[in-house]
Design a protein around this nucleic acid. Structure first.
Lengths: 339, 339
DNA sequence: CTGAAAGCGCTTACAG
DNA sequence: CTGAAAGCGCTTACAG
């Protein structure tokens, strides 16, 4: 193990000067810098991150807390964020959380044990933040939810306009002639700014504006954001409302599950039942029929989140909130209802 | 920020004794332990991980290096491994790598900067290990590849028996009556113990044993492990060999892509073309038709890898190599060829 | 521009 | 069983 002391000894300078070179401080002679850099290269020296972090009370790079790992949407988002962080050569570490764990509890642990400069939360829910984010002091970004109404000075948030996107998706069903539309997925009982709630609200709003009755108790079925969830929810909904001709699923995975259920009941998509999803996963464009869905702008979310974090860490920018545009993907899962 | 000094002061013991309590060392009186634990709880004290790691020359938990993130199979495997590690309350950190990066280079950085106790590699290729793993000293596990022939003392490996599994998958096509079978995916030029090579070898072997001609140059088309890769490869293969009646895809994602291509050409699956995949992703059982595929035993891989790592770290067990059983999932994507 | 020295929060022989 | 003290590898005022 070669340390800063070795570099100092070999180069003939002190550890202090070596440290200054390592950290690109000014006030080092060109001569010293060159000599020390040469030794560093020669010895293939790598600083000990722990020692560095221990010393710098302010420290430790950016942490990303991901809630729910077997989630293709979050995986893609994470990939984009990591890629952008790497381009800015910011140190990043990732931690995955169970759906059952509180992201805020995990963040607390993290803050105490490794003093991150900032935390990016993927897949967190505003409810948890509302309840227990108060003590947090470092810059945080909540991606995929809207925290603007929570009023925390150090919490930014970026998301798709869930309400508008859901509204648009459902409007496409309405345009195709559907009058009996079911909605599946999420848990609307949570908080008004959770994205489930917003998607459901947007969808219901579109129906209402078209003069279509939407009965939350009857035409909506909650479920987890998984294929199996979609399968089960679709079964319940179709049993309860056999007159439904189209389904809006709160995520693509839920849509896939519901489509499998329809097939198991001998229904054809879209001629017997239209389906529209939400997320725009790659899978949706390879399945048959291709799923019509709202694509969230993953690059945009990643870019905004990373830029915001970087500016806040390095320039004390204020937290901000924003949405990214969505795009409707015209698949093959919507047709006019049978007469 | 509350430190071990504070705990010592408040409890009336020395920092040494507090440290012993924290690390569950013997030789602490019950009285002292109880008193100190009470203070720790009261103060909600969390040790500073950096200081701890700095001090313990041997340190830093277990690292997981994942190559390729948008890979549902690896994501599930990672999830299982993290879950098991957590149960053993081992500290774990995860790092994702581009397909283009060398996992060994990343491991080298890691070793120097954070001294992990061990590294688990997901999705690494034996080729890279053969070339440059030599300098590594800590226990490592390569999951999803067979490193037994590499002969490194500190490298375990666990994998599905790719050759046998592929052979079995193809045997199902043969049983259904197929005589002209195409294979897509992977890059066979790499190394003899890469899993692409093994899957292709197993598949070709099954065909040969059935007395069926398999022409590698004609009946095989390489491609990346992605849906788009499968789409493109299937296009080339079907153009070149219009007489093929069944395809073995080296992964489920590749299979999905190929199926989309077939649909785009107006083919029905399985009546016009049978398809069999490899991995057993959840998606495969929700799509239509359900994909017939070989399911890798993700729990088994995770369990073996974690147990091996733990035993080697804590009891200096020797490295080992093993395979987990596979299971054929009887989907709906295989039928007899048309006459 | 550079060096000597203190100290980040912890662990661990070494005494007792 | 417990405490005093050294030291892990680094950074950063403080002098000069």
């Amino acid at each position: 193990m070669i340390t800063i002391k070795d570099i100092a000894r070999i180069s003939g300078y002190s550890t202090g000067t070596v440290s200054r070179v390592l950290n690109n401080k000014a006030d080092v002679s060109e001569e010293a810098r060159a000599a020390i850099e040469a030794v560093i290269r020669d010895q293939n020296y790598q600083p000990n991150a722990n020692a560095k972090k221990l010393r710098q009370t302010t420290q430790s790079g950016i942490h990303i807390l991901v809630r729910g790992m077997n989630n293709s949407f979050l995986a893609s988002l994470l990939e984009e964020i990591l890629f952008r962080m790497r381009e800015h050569s910011e140190g990043v570490s990732v931690q995955f959380l169970d759906e059952t764990e509180s992201e805020i509890d995990a963040a607390r642990q993290l803050c105490i044990s490794s003093r991150p400069k900032g935390i990016i939360f993927l897949g967190g829910s505003t409810g948890t933040f509302r309840e227990s984010f108060g003590w947090m002091e470092i810059p945080c970004v909540l991606v995929t939810a809207d925290a603007s109404s929570l009023g925390y000075r150090n919490l930014s948030s970026f998301t798709t306009d869930d309400s508008a996107a859901a509204s648009y998706a459902v409007s496409r069903l309405i345009e195709a002639g559907h009058r009996r539309v079911g909605i599946i997925g999420g848990y609307p009982v949570m908080y008004p700014d959770d994205n489930s709630t917003k998607r459901i609200g947007g969808a219901a709003g579109a129906l209402e504006r078209a003069g279509i009755q939407f009965d939350m108790d009857k035409d909506y079925e909650p479920c987890p954001f998984s294929m199996q969830g979609g399968y089960d929810a679709a079964a319940k909904l179709l049993d309860r409302c056999p007159d439904i001709t189209a389904i809006f699923a709160l995520s693509d995975a839920i849509a896939y599950g519901s489509m499998r259920l329809m097939r198991d009941r001998g229904m054809d998509i879209p001629s017997d039942m239209s389906v529209v999803g939400f997320d725009g996963l790659d899978y949706s464009q390879f399945m048959s029929p291709r799923l019509s869905t709202v694509r969230q702008d993953i690059s945009g979310l990643a870019a905004k989140s990373v830029d915001d974090m970087l500016l806040r860490i390095n320039y004390q920018r204020a937290a901000s909130h924003g949405t990214v545009p969505f795009k409707f993907i015209d698949g093959e899962s919507i047709s006019s209802p049978k007469l």
